[in-house]
Design a protein around this nucleic acid. Structure first.
Length: 267
DNA sequence: ATGGCCCGTTTCACGGGA
């Protein structure tokens, strides 16, 4: 079955062994990575080629951020866009056909936003809101007669069942109303479908990130759903299942704090 | 119980993550 996955890997070089494990076990056609934390020439191209991901679109930078698309099928029209006039690597896109016709895949790493949810006092939060506003404008210019997928680490948990405690997180960056309203506005703007919630009921608690700071992330289970896969309606009509790979939070003694999210598209 | 950890870097301290 054609599948697409997204995973904030928090250093692709440090965690190459568990990326390989994931690819071996799940064999996605496409894997979108965020926070690769390396420059383009430091990306472990060869090891991933050897796993069959011979098509790679990498947009790295030194030390922080950075995104990449790994694919078994050819990638064309590879492109990255800057946001907020800041030279950070937070987006890369490519066109491919991994089973149901050509589709453009956009891989995003939306800014985290710092600690204080006040754009007047916290420039990082200002940046996050500006980034979302610019995404919204950019959506208006996207050609929507083509099939599109947008995925990545959006750093926002939009629904109350996307966090462990809605009440306790209302003033915590990632779940404040100004952020969730902005993300829901983006979703509605061009009729995107949240493929994960299309297949996993909104009544069910669902997380893709757990802090490193908890002593026992599994027992505490204070997670948030920050990682998303959206698609245009024509693509969404082909999606048949979604899963969040929760066990990956415990893979190796050095896991990422995010786990992979996967969507399957028919037989 | 509002602290607790983890990454890369012109490193023994910092910025950034969320």
């Amino acid at each position: 079955m054609p599948t697409l996955a997204t995973w904030n890997i928090n250093s692709v070089r440090l965690r190459l062994p568990i990326v390989i494990d994931f690819l071996d076990q799940f064999q996605p056609d496409i894997l979108c990575l965020q926070e690769i934390k390396c420059q383009n020439d430091q990306f472990p191209r060869k090891a991933l080629e050897e796993k069959g991901y011979i098509h790679q679109a990498v947009h790295g930078q030194k030390g922080y951020h950075g995104v990449a698309i790994l694919s078994k099928t050819p990638l064309t029209e590879i492109s990255s866009r800057g946001f907020c006039d800041i030279p950070e690597s937070r987006h890369i896109s490519a066109m491919t056909d991994f089973g149901h016709g050509p589709v453009t895949v956009h891989n995003f790493y939306i800014p985290a936003g710092g600690d204080e949810p006040d754009p007047e006092t916290n420039p990082k939060f200002r940046h996050k809101l500006d980034f979302l506003a610019e995404m919204s404008e950019w959506f208006d210019d996207l050609v929507f007669d083509a099939r599109q997928i947008i995925c990545g680490d959006f750093n926002i948990a939009p629904h109350e069942n996307d966090v462990w405690s809605h009440k306790q997180l209302l003033k915590v960056v990632s779940h404040t109303p100004v952020e969730t309203d902005a993300l829901n506005g983006l979703l509605a703007r061009r009729n995107w479908v949240d493929l994960v919630r299309q297949h996993i009921p909104i009544e069910e608690k669902l997380y893709s990130w757990w802090s490193y700071r908890a002593k026992d992330w599994d027992a505490a289970d204070k997670g948030r759903r920050l990682d998303h896969i959206w698609a245009t309606r024509d693509v969404a009509a082909k999606a048949t299942n979604a899963q969040v790979v929760r066990p990956a939070r415990g893979w190796s003694d050095k896991p990422s704090d995010h786990v992979p999210v996967i969507v399957g598209f028919g037989s």
